[in-house]
Nucleic acid binder design. Structure first.
Length: 679
RNA sequence: GCGCCCGUAGCUCAGUUGGACUAGAGCGUCUGCCUUCUAAGCAGAGGGUCGGGGGUUCGAAUCCCUCCGGGCGCGCCA
């Protein structure tokens, strides 16, 4: 609602300025600091004053008098040095909120083009940890947001099942544990196989460090896995598949689902790279280095700004630029030295690097590769849909068409910014400017451990690490908080509380509520931070259920539901609809300011969603949910609805409560958080 | 060495494209509030040279420069 009026005001003022002053300006709008100053304001007259060389306040006065009527707006006032403050028609706004609450989602397919979001991407060689949870929570929430705005989204979870990490675990099974493929198969059937591999992976790393010559096993195993031969390959397949299933289970616990799992093994078998290599070579995007330290490698030159610079803001400039900064002006001497700004794509032994395969994958996502995967059903989702995986077999005939997106978001942590940049540079070098511009690295900072958290888990830190604000997690060291452990701990804490509060409920019901609250706490915790803030993980914060947390928001929704339920139980007959005039009476300033504020926030969900999508920042929505919950809790203590004697007022308050409940539930749903019936 | 990110209250963090008064939350601390729709809640108090210094502007936490401090990345690893 708010978003619609915001747009309307923006358009009206913009058009008016165009007409009356012949100036085209973008009209910025904001929320005034106080309700008495209206619901919407614009400082546009300051900008206009500069251009017209006139006092801003005078322009504002002129405009306030001549702007004319805007639907939903009662008046426009001049304030301060030249602000235009806009006052909304409260009754009309409320009527809209009450009518449309919870149904603001745009029709699916409004934009038929497909958006591909790739997230999770955990190496299938160990249990998922909390860093992976941040990735999945961000990716999944962004997907929900895009779908809410009517976009058609495909969720991909890339599985690097033939990489070094899997190879290391295979080495562990074969050489450390002396296991046969049959033994591993038996182990893989155990529920906590991912935990077993977590420990084994750390042990193998240790084992390599003790005796460097053992690294030969890794090289040999990696090659065997890539070529699909021998027991190593067999074990690799077993491990890769079993661990992926563990990850899917873990992610299912927090409501994260996927459409398709493209796997690296198929990228190899179907010769995606060979195809991409041909294209890159033909276009001259990669060159064979004949001299210098990279002699014998195929390299991609970097650092040129390739003309079309407009849609890449300065901060997205090439992270690794080395040498000459300003193109042309100075630093030309650098051009003489080769190997300066280039990235190796194919090693001198002919094997392709990770980034090379990534370029092929990215091309496939846009349907630019000229090759496609085949697919087989891999798993069933709770919603009944299938999760498909790429396959080297014949594939199933009824598989949907994946890929062929027009926009791609890769949810990957910021440490991989450079590689993501190389991938986009590859697209651009192939002449796919359009697709390059629609490739977004949805980056976020890592989850690290607070030194205290690391110590609580029994790790001994170096004196240097103890002094730091946080310690980076490390799969190789086995240093990290496993996702399932944290979820278990959250569920344990919540179920004790639920059992105490609702002893009459069946155990199964209690468990379900505890789970919902646990996930609410977890997802909110992962989403409340903005993307480029490093999360220094601390158990105390993550296990908190008070204050700015998921459960706080859920609790507000539960309270709202309780009121509605109690009123229904009392059987009190209340008017079905609230007339605008009636609502206006209770919303009128100054007495109605507090209820009006709540209605205003409730009506601002669309605005929060738009903001979150445009800035690709789910934290904006998390903040919104909290603010709405907070406003409601405040209202809850001021107004006692069940004991309200004035039937008309009671009906109005109840309508407000219902609207808030729907909007809050909708906001939480977008965050992947369910609101329980009781808690 | 080069690049990216960060530095706001004791702690953890918000702060849309520069804006209006007293720079906001949450946690923690202190004080109140459960015979009233569940206290996973509410009200109040205290707490800040927005890392330092310059500059642009009518106006800067926000933009530019510089310095300091921290993190990450820069491999024929992924």
């Amino acid at each position: 609602m708010y978003r619609v009026i915001e747009e309307r005001v923006r358009a009206a003022i913009g058009a008016h300025i165009e007409k009356a002053y012949g100036q085209a300006v973008s009209v910025g709008v904001e929320r005034p600091p106080k309700l008495e100053m209206g619901e919407l304001a614009t400082p546009v007259c300051f900008e206009l004053a500069k251009r017209l060389k006139r006092a801003p306040r005078l322009i504002a006065q002129e405009m306030a008098g001549s702007i004319g009527a805007i639907e939903g707006v009662t008046r426009v006032e001049v304030a301060g040095g030249g602000y235009l403050n806009v006052f909304l028609d409260r009754a009309a706004f409320f009527e809209n909120v009450a009518r449309l609450a919870g149904r603001e989602a745009m029709a699916a397919g409004a934009d038929a083009s497909k958006v591909i979001v790739e997230h999770t991407n955990i190496n299938p060689n160990k249990a998922a940890h909390i860093g992976h949870l941040r990735n999945a929570a961000l990716g999944d929430t962004f997907v929900r947001l895009l779908r809410h705005t009517g976009r058609c989204v495909e969720v991909q979870n890339y599985i690097d099942n033939t990489g070094v990490q899997v190879a290391d675990v295979v080495v562990g099974f074969e050489h450390l544990e002396k296991k046969s493929p049959g033994d591993v198969r038996t182990l893989a059937a155990e529920p906590q196989f991912d935990y077993l591999c977590w420990d084994l992976y750390a042990r193998v790393t240790q084992w390599f460090e003790e005796e460097k010559t053992r690294l030969a096993f890794r090289v040999e195993t990696l090659k065997a896995i890539e070529e699909g031969r021998g027991t190593a390959a067999e074990i690799g397949v077993i491990v890769g598949e079993a661990i992926v299933r563990c990850h899917l289970r873990t992610m299912e616990r927090l409501g994260v689902e996927y459409d398709v799992l493209p796997r690296e093994s198929e990228i190899l078998h179907l010769k995606f790279w060979k195809q991409a290599f041909g294209m890159l070579r033909e276009r001259g995007a990669i060159q064979l280095a004949t001299s210098g330290k990279n002699a014998g490698c195929w390299v991609m030159p970097l650092g040129k700004s390739e003309g079309g610079e407009k849609n890449r803001p300065a901060r997205d400039a090439l992270p690794h630029q080395g040498g000459s900064g300003q193109a042309g002006a100075t630093g030309e001497s650098e051009a003489a030295g080769e190997n300066q700004d280039e990235k190796i794509i194919v090693r001198s032994d002919g094997t392709v690097t990770y980034v090379g395969k990534d370029i092929a994958y990215q091309l496939w996502k846009f349907g630019l590769l000229g090759l496609d995967f085949r697919y087989a059903r891999f798993a069933k989702r709770p919603d009944g849909d299938d999760v498909w995986a790429s396959t080297s077999g014949a594939g199933e005939a009824d598989a949907p068409q994946f890929g062929h997106g027009s926009e791609v978001y890769n949810v990957i942590d910021s440490r991989q910014a450079f590689l993501q940049h190389v991938v986009v540079a590859g697209l651009r070098a192939l002449g796919h400017e359009e697709q390059a511009n629609h490739s977004t690295h949805f980056s976020y900072e890592m989850v690290a451990l607070s030194p205290r958290a690391a110590q609580e888990m029994g790790y001994t830190l170096s004196p240097d690490e103890e002094k730091r604000a946080y310690v980076e997690m490390s799969g190789r060291r086995g240093l990290g908080v496993k996702a399932d452990d944290l979820i278990d701990e959250l569920e344990e804490a919540t179920s004790a509380e639920v059992a105490e509060r609702h002893p009459q409920l069946a155990a199964e019901e209690q468990e379900k509520i505890a789970h919902t609250i646990a996930i609410g706490a977890l997802r909110y915790f992962l989403l409340k931070f903005t993307r480029n803030s490093v999360i220094s993980f601390d158990f105390k914060d993550a296990l908190s259920f008070e204050g700015e947390t998921g459960p706080y928001c859920q609790y507000a929704a539960v309270r709202a539901r309780n009121i509605v339920r109690k009123v229904e139980e009392q059987g009190g007959k209340l008017p079905e609809t609230i007339s605008a005039a009636g609502a206006g009476q209770w919303l009128a300033a100054p007495g109605g300011n507090d209820v009006w504020e709540l209605a205003l926030i409730a009506g601002s969900l669309g605005s929060a969603v738009t903001g979150a999508v445009e800035t690709q920042e789910p934290a904006i929505l998390a903040k919104f949910a909290f603010q709405l919950a907070q406003a409601f809790n405040n209202f809850y203590h001021k107004h006692h609805i069940l004991s309200e004697e004035d039937a008309a007022k009671k009906a109005f308050l109840l309508a407000l409560v219902e609207a808030v409940e729907k909007q809050l539930v909708a906001a939480l749903e977008l965050l992947g958080i369910e609101a329980p019936e009781r808690m």
